[in-house]
Structures are given as C-alpha cells and as structure tokens.
Design a protein around this nucleic acid. Structure first.
Length: 426
RNA sequence: GGAGGGAUGGCAGAGUGGACGAUUGCGACGGUCUUGAAAACCGUUGAGGUGCAAGCCUCCGGGGGUUCGAAUCCCCCUCCCUCCGCCA
C-alpha cells in the first residue's frame, strides 16, 4: 500500500511511477478525491465531537453538584449534536473504506533503478553465468520428466491420479533430493537467518499484508469451511511474523528463513507448461526474508541475491540474472532480480528465484514499524525477500544438466552429504 | 465439540457510568551525587489522524448497541487460559 502522503505531496511522482507500470491514472484521481473527502468530513465530525464532550463534562459537573434539573437543556443539545455526528461518522467510514480498497489494489511504485519496459521481453539480462550454448551434448538434451520416469525418481502419472494435473510425486532418490535441496539451502543460510517453520494455512489478513489479497484471490487455494488460505510462498507468513509490531532499531536488519510447501492455483496459466516440473500446484521452497530500515534495504537486497545465486552456482547449473522492467515487476515490488536456470533438456530458462525489494509497501499493509534511530517516533519498515531455493525447477535443472551418457544423473558434490553419500542416480 | 475464566500502555497490574489516554510498580531515557559504576533521589517516557500553529480528534482485543457521557453496562465475533470430550 502506498503512503497516502505521497498522493498529497508528490502526486506527479505517483502518476509517473504507476504509468511506468502501465496503470491508468483514473484510480489515482479517485484516491485524491476520496482523501480530500475523508479529511473534510473528519474535520467537521471532530468539531462536533469536541462540542459533545464539552457539553457532557458540563452535565457531569452539574450532576456532581446536585443540580440535576439544570442539565436537561444541555442533554437535549448534546443529543441533537450526537445525531449529526453519527451521520458524518457513517459518511467518513464509507469514504475511508472506499479509499482503502482502492489503495490496496494499487501496485507499488517501481524504483528509479528498475529498467523501463512493459512486458517480460523488456527485462534486462544483467549477467549470464556458467552458460555455454555449444557445450551441451545429446545426453543432456532429454527432458527431466523422461529421465525422471526412466530412473523411477519422478512419478507424474500417479501424482496426477491422486490430485489431478500439475501435481507430482517424487520417489526414491528423487524424493530424497527434494529434502536434500531444502536442507542444503537452510544450512547455507543458518549463519545469519533465523529458521522458522510457520503455518501453511493462514487467514485472509495475512494474505492481504503481502499483497496477495484482495487483488490475486484467484491464484490462491482457499478452504471455505474454515476461511483459510494455503500460502503461495513463505513470504506470506514471514511477513506477518512482525505484523502490528514496533521493532527495536537495534534488531534490524531482522533475517528469517523458512522451508514450507507452497500452493498455487496457477489460474492464469491453464494448459501452459503442464509437463513435468515446469509448473506445479504444490512445491517445496526455502525462502529468505528481511525486515530493514530504508537505509539498510539496498545492502540486504544484494545479500539475498548473492545467497540465492551462490546455491545455484554450487549446484553446477547455468543461470542468468534478470533485472525486471517496470511493467513486469510483481505488484508489491519496487525492484526485482530473477534468477533463471538453464535447463538443457527442455532448452529453456526456468525462473527459480525472485529477489525483491518491497520498500515499505508490504510493511504499511502489515503495520510493521521500527523506532527511529533518534529515538523519537516510528517509521514503517522495509521488507525484502527471495527464494533461496525453489525445488521443482532446480530439481529439473539438475536432472537435465547432470545427465550422463549412460542415462544416469550425477549428484552435485554439495548435495551428496545430504543423500547419504550418493554420487550418482541410476 | 461442551462448561467456566480472561484480553488495559515495552512488561506487570489497578480501574465496574462523569475531571480517565487511564493509579501504581518494573523497565527504558535524561539529570543530581560519584574517580567510575551501583544504590539513592529528581524528572521524562504509548501509538495514530488533522492543522502553519495553539489545539482538536481517535485508540483500554475487534465490531455493533444503550447513554448527554462508556475501559466500565448490553449483544455478536476473535484470541488466550482452565476443566471435560476427542486425538497425531
């Protein structure tokens, strides 16, 4: 949620930022109009309240003095004002509610550093690492679902039998590798990040805090009977960890990591990427998240990207870093770097991590503040996060990249200790 | 799921219709004293809205109601605790 003060003091900046995303300016106009209205009504209402309080105090004084009969006129006047106040209050609530709904649906402003552009084709490739297009042999040009099936480590058919399309089942070393990847990611970040195991079913307001509701309700699994949502990423519960709290300045930056299942309906992608692990409804992921001051945010953005990148590099995968253009940024993000792994079997770049800086957009929704360094007053925190490791596509990248001429898959060295010393699958 | 008890400032804990945004204690911060510290003593110390400011307004778990006036009375909801039931 954007700071309403931006609309009052730096309206042109808001318009410019939103238009870089391709948002129309109609809602901006509506926000300004409603904000004016709310403040106008509130001023009038507060004036009435003030008079009612003064009258009531007079009545109270008369009562204490035993002059009950003289209070009648004051009571009548106060009652009259009370009726007016009630009307204004209702009008204020209605306008304020409308304003909030509007603000909740407006996306964040792109950072000035985010490149211009409107679609994913305009994203800037910041770096390409460990990738030599001519280096791939025929034995690596096999899709992971074929290798997985052949080695008995991926059972798509039975996953679908249980739960429908885009649900998969891992088996034997394939299942162990899911666990190993998560354990590796947690161990590699345990030096600075506190491990958390949060609930995977959360309330609506928890989803609102990160920006996943109300705008993207179609993407989330919802348990109607209990009105709970299955989290699409650990970002959701981790952001609500500090909801409605005022953090101590000395506690920042506060770093957390969590391994969770993630659930996505993929409502807009029906029929797309349905094969293998390219796009699934349920998957495991280790997420990194930080609460910071505004000043600390850039350093943490780099740190999370570095850590996510290091894991991919050490798994021996080819990857590239994308600097997302303004038009392709996630709704809540001001700047995002995507890490994409090259999967030779399907000859595609697969997004495995999205490292984002949200400014104070999420923290304002979640009401997360910190005491300012000078001691007086509070400031809204900044939040940042990124996948340390999202399992399915990394799993696919490993199986395709490290496939050997004999059809087996070499286990990356960093993973071997987590697979009981296994060096080769198949 | 049933029955009862709770929810007040950073924490603990008073307050059952009127001068209460809230007694007090602890903590924190500033000062006096001290070579320095501790102790003692003095003072300060919640969050937000609006306004140039003085000020005004809101917030005692959330929402509604009664009243001239609600932390306080009534209704609904959420959460926590105890007991019973069920259970990995």
């Amino acid at each position: 949620m954007l700071d309403i003060r931006l609309f009052r003091n730096e309206l042109e900046q808001v318009r410019a930022g939103l238009s870089r995303r391709g948002e129309s300016s109609e809602s901006v106009d509506a926000v300004v109009r409603l904000d004016d209205e709310v403040r106008r009504i509130n001023t009038e209402r507060d004036e009435l309240r003030s008079r009612i309080r003064a009258l009531s105090n007079e009545v109270g004084q008369l009562m204490r003095d035993g002059l009950k009969d003289e209070a009648g006129d004051l009571q009548a006047e106060s009652r009259e004002l009370g009726a007016q106040e009630k009307q204004l209050d209702a009008a204020s609530d209605a306008a304020a509610h409308e304003l909030r709904e509007l603000l909740l649906r407006l996306p964040n402003l792109p950072s000035d550093d985010a490149p211009d552009g409107s679609t994913e084709h305009d994203n800037v490739v910041a770096r390409v690492e460990n990738y030599d297009p001519g280096s791939y042999a025929d034995h690596q040009r096999v899709p992971h679902w074929e290798t997985g099936e052949a080695l008995g480590i991926l059972d798509v058919e039975r996953g679908v039998k249980m739960s429908g399309s885009m649900f998969v089942m891992y088996r034997k070393a394939g299942a162990a590798m899911v666990r190993a990847l998560c354990q590796l990611a947690l161990d590699r970040n345990a030096d600075l990040y506190e491990e958390v195991r949060p609930p995977t079913l959360v309330r609506a307001d928890t989803m609102v805090s990160t920006g996943h509701l109300p705008k993207f309700a179609d993407d989330a699994y919802h348990l109607e009977r209990d009105d709970l949502y299955a989290i699409p990423t650990a970002e959701v519960p981790l952001t609500s960890l500090a909801r409605d709290e005022i953090l101590d300045h000395a506690a920042l930056p506060a770093r957390y990591m969590a391994h969770t299942s993630c659930f996505r309906r993929e409502a807009g992608s029906a029929g797309k990427d349905t094969r293998g692990l390219l796009r699934v409804h349920e998957f495991d992921k280790v997420e990194l998240l930080a609460y910071t001051t505004a000043e600390q945010a850039p350093a943490l953005h780099r740190e999370i990207l570095d850590r996510a990148e290091a894991l991919i590099r050490d798994l021996g995968l080819a990857y590239r870093i994308l600097d997302l253009c303004a038009g392709d940024l996630g709704n809540s993000s001001r700047r995002t770097f995507d890490i994409e792994v090259y999967a030779p079997g399907v000859d595609r770049w697969l997004e495995v991590s999205s490292v984002s800086w949200f400014g104070d957009y999420q923290a304002r929704r979640a009401n997360i503040r910190h005491r300012s360094a000078e001691g007086k007053g509070t400031e809204v925190c900044h939040t940042l996060n990124g996948s340390a490791l999202a399992v399915p596509r990394v799993w696919a990248g490993i199986v395709e990249t490290h496939r050997q001429p004999d059809g087996s898959v070499a286990v990356p060295e960093v993973l071997q200790p987590y697979l009981r010393g296994l060096t080769r699958i198949g």
